[in-house]
Design a protein around this nucleic acid. Structure first.
Length: 116
DNA sequence: CTGTTGACTTAGG
DNA sequence: ACCTAAGCCAACA
């Protein structure tokens, strides 16, 4: 059965946009001085198992975004950026600025991980 | 439409 | 604790 393009115009695109917005909202909810993992955020945003998608969204974040992207780290407590890269340094500075200390390039998740 | 890619995760060795 | 392999999802060529 054929459907005119006018009627099958998809909110699918809009739905995906809403998913991203919900992700942004979730990230914005991370308290000052706390951190969350990619997988954790994916789950909270309703996209369980989409940790890599979260990474994609952050990479494509608008430059003027005010999201606390620096509070997002890997599940093992490491920063997603390779050590000694510009991104790593920026994120680490912002975290330490909030009182989140790193030891051996790792964050103590037991202490700093956000628990909603 | 199929194949790659990546700011990831988890289970095994 | 570190390395590898496989799984995961959306975006992109």
């Amino acid at each position: 059965m054929k459907v005119p393009p006018s009627q099958q115009s998809k909110p699918a695109n809009q739905q995906q946009l809403l998913q991203r917005l919900q992700l942004y909202q979730t990230i914005a909810a991370i308290p000052h001085g706390k951190v969350a993992s990619y997988g954790q955020l994916a789950t909270l945003a309703g996209q369980t198992g989409a940790a890599r998608w979260v990474g994609w969204c952050l990479r494509h974040l608008p430059k003027d975004s005010c999201l606390p992207w620096h509070r997002v780290i890997t599940a093992s407590g490491r920063l997603a950026f390779p050590v000694a890269t510009a991104g790593y340094v920026r994120q680490r500075e912002k975290l330490e600025q909030e009182g989140v200390q790193l030891q051996n390039h790792k964050v103590a998740m037991k202490v700093y991980q956000w628990q909603p």
